[in-house]
Write a protein that binds this DNA or RNA. Structure first.
Lengths: 115, 115
DNA sequence: TTCTTCCCCTCGCATTACAAGGGGTTCGTC
DNA sequence: GACGAACCCCTTGTAATGCGAGGGGAAGAA
């Protein structure tokens, strides 16, 4: 109702792929990684996380496998597929382009282009 | 089906508000402005544009009024309300925060923070 | 035992971008 | 005058998607 900016739309998938770039993680771990690397700015709710993981799996961008976490708990570990890695690369580039454009429009830029 | 990154999610409203910051524009003009300022990177489809304009109006962030365009055509001009201006400011700040966070996560950054 | 933390999941709601389709008008050109 | 391109407005339906709310279970500490 207070409706705040609903960013995070459409970016969840790339973020997850990126979380898995340097090796497998379980879902909970993916959320932790994202929260950590963004200094707590980006929080992934579980109702967002798991469905996202499942759809990435359905698209063959990640593969899941049951295992045991560091805390000795049953956990499902996801790893990037080759297609997932390619997708990550592409989507990252797209994001950069997009963010630059929005930054230009809003007048909040972080360097780029010719001086 | 080929599904490419579908950014432009949730950012449409801020972009429109921003387009109106320096004076009223009609819908078509808003789309042109956005396309122009982003060098054609961001395209606003009409099926996105008009509904967005209407919902901003419903939220009292913009006000619409019929007039005549530079090309001597009937056009509806939108202007920012006070609430709209405040919202633009807030959402712009939110975007900056969010974009920085995503940039950090994806490893594509455009400067910020302490060196 | 109880509590906290970790870890997984699903359902339903609201929102949203967009394609597709429909109009009408002005102006330049043939 | 006819024709087409550019300008300008709109709505409907569809497919996603984020998220709140709810449910479960197991490990380890207190």
């Amino acid at each position: 109702m207070t409706d705040s900016l609903n960013l995070l739309k459409g970016t969840v998938d790339v973020l997850i792929l990126r979380a898995l770039e340097n090796g497998p993680r379980h879902g909970y771990g993916v959320a932790e990684w994202i929260e950590g690397v963004t200094d707590g700015t980006l929080l992934l709710e579980e109702g967002t996380l798991y469905p996202a993981l499942h759809r990435l799996q359905r698209k063959r961008l990640v593969e899941g496998e049951w295992g045991v976490s560091d805390n000795n708990r049953r956990a499902k570990f996801y790893r990037l597929t080759d297609a997932g890695r390619r997708r990550l690369e592409r989507d990252t580039a797209d994001w950069a382009r997009y963010a630059r454009a929005v930054g230009q429009a809003l007048g909040v830029e972080g360097r780029s282009g010719t001086p």
